[in-house]
Nucleic acid binder design. Structure first.
Lengths: 338, 338
DNA sequence: CCTTCGGTTGGGAACGTTCCCATTCTCTGC
DNA sequence: GCAGAGAATGGGAACGTTCCCAACCGAAGG
């Protein structure tokens, strides 16, 4: 029981009294079928509970109706960084609607990246979504060279050639900076992400822009970099406090790092926001759960996920079309920490 | 460029001066090949950068080397509930090591569940992992009937027939209860998850056991149920405070609900832990970020993910083997909230 | 010297689809 | 009334692999 022989397209054809091809046409919605034949085929399909074998179909069509979503685990763990979960949700929403499968690939180290390349070469997926790309990441180049449709969440540089969607990191950083200035803060530090990522550089540049607008010269002592982790945010905050004990505000390029920074501030007896105002980035639930609740730059992460999925489906459907670059707006959500 | 014709097994055979079958044997590690032939084949593979087409292979072997991980999104969103991310990590670790693909399926409503059933019937996966099952969930039964290897994280009931791994929810609930009693609390409430889930019932029973051990009769007024969301936890807390204003402790069956409960307690001016002690479940980072930091029952979620992946691979390899049931231990992590 | 056996080898068939093409049938227009 | 167009149909081939089985080879044994 259970594992009985499943019907094939031949079984259906025999039952409906038509040829294989006609059944195939009905399944694929071809108009070149008489109503009569179509009804017979549909009835047979229903009777036999026939479901086409997608593997066999993939062999001849060279399509798998499946795309890979690649998430690097090395620097920031899925789950610890809510960004990834939200991207997954957005991607999944769009893919489900078009009946496309989602292959999730967590890449921890370069060994696993090789496996990924194999998997892609095996033609198990029609396209690839990459998240959190570094400037010198070899993967986008490899995929491009393989001729496999590829779309990025984020970009390697402002001159990114591959299709991608990202949020307005520059504008978001600027908003954060302006907000702190408007709160009367004058010694505004920042905890940046890794500088080999465009997302980090853009947010940092936004912060600089805001200071310069206000006539403040960005000071090297007020810039620390971390790796988007809580631990990193904590260490960066400690280093900032050593170098510039008089700082009265800090803009962290992610909520997770902001949370780490707040832990360190509390440990050193600085009150938030009285002594030091804090602004994060992402507006994840960490911002809501944090105490005091965290002012944060909201980016439409789920929409980024949905957008890259759409871009990828477009590119799979028409590989010749020009690459698309989409920037989504950010919004500052003010809470208790600033 | 890029999309040049990829080599097939025939190309390799011609290049190595052997037959198709010999190449296939080399690829699949068969011992029935002379060293000489093997070397020639391996050289040809390297020269041509040949990678086997897994779709074609799947057609004849009836194996896809890919399993589905099904996560219901309806009650608790991926990302808002760290549990799922951790399970994904554990699953991914085991699967990557065995070169098995991971199909991620987020199911939002019953319509999407039908699609899932189709996808499974299409034989796109060798097995299915189900997370967060409800007692009357039709999916496990359908999959069992289809004869598809299926493993659960959690169980529908203590008599679960399918293979599964879950943590010791009963013991965890008991530990939480005992801990609050040891802190001298006497009016101990609980916020349970949905009662149609075994995980909820077990944690609730553990709480009851602990109270009864201490000679306290569990009071209906001190039991509220919610849906594992922050909002639900908040509402449940409100309802508990109305029904039993004198409560001095609460055990929530998840950190997310505990966070919601703490928000409501703060809103009503109750101090944590002075007026009301709070204990959560999961020991997610929410517990660390919360203020005050949250005492929580830690369960090895990532290990649960790894375990169900292993059980599934076992079952795929030997579908006839008896089903396995694995229970993993929990541990109470005491922090500031109790 | 012939048989047998184990180790190698490769061709044919099959897996379940889709696509190409040839065939049949029906209508339209002159 | 007949050619031609177009719709509907189905058989053959192909997609790239694995599995079955027959065939070959050299050595061992009678």
């Amino acid at each position: 029981m259970g594992a009985q022989q499943r019907p094939t397209i031949k079984t259906v054809a025999a039952r409906a009294g038509v040829g294989r091809t006609t059944v195939s046409r009905v399944i694929n919605g071809s108009p070149l079928v008489s109503d009569e034949a179509r009804d017979a085929v549909l009835a047979a399909i229903a009777e036999l509970k026939y479901v086409p074998n997608s593997v066999a179909r993939g062999l001849v069509t060279r399509r798998t109706n499946s795309v890979a979503l690649v998430i690097p685990e090395s620097e920031s763990r899925l789950g610890a960084e809510p960004y990834f979960s939200a991207v997954i949700r957005g991607v999944s929403t769009v893919l489900t609607a078009t009946r496309t499968q989602l292959q999730l690939v967590l890449v921890r180290d370069s060994g696993e990246r090789d496996q990924l390349t194999d998997c892609v070469a095996e033609r198990r997926v029609d396209g690839v979504l990459l998240v959190s790309v570094h400037e010198d990441d070899p993967l986008p180049g490899i995929l491009e060279h393989l001729g496999l449709p590829t779309v990025l969440a984020g970009r390697r540089s402002p001159a990114e050639s591959l299709s991608h969607a990202c949020s307005d990191n520059l504008g978001g950083g600027r908003e954060a900076g302006r907000h702190l200035i408007s709160r009367g803060r004058t010694a505004i530090a920042t905890i940046s992400g890794p500088l080999d990522m465009d997302v980090s550089r853009s947010r940092l540049q936004g912060w600089k822009d805001a200071l310069e607008e206000a006539g403040i010269e960005p000071d090297e002592r007020l810039i620390a970099t971390a790796d988007f982790t809580e631990e990193g945010g904590m260490l960066a905050m400690r280093s900032l406090l050593e170098r510039a004990p008089d700082l009265d505000a800090v803009f962290a390029a992610s909520d997770v790092m902001a949370a780490g920074a707040m832990l360190e501030l509390r440990r050193q007896g600085r009150r938030v926001p009285e002594d030091v105002a804090v602004v994060g980035f992402d507006d994840s639930y960490i911002a809501r759960y944090a105490y005091p609740s965290l002012t944060s730059v909201s980016q439409p992460v789920e929409e980024i996920g949905a957008t890259i999925a759409r871009l990828l489906l477009d590119e799979i459907a028409d590989p010749g079309a020009p690459r698309q670059h989409i920037t989504l707006p950010t919004e500052l959500i003010v809470r208790d920490s600033s």
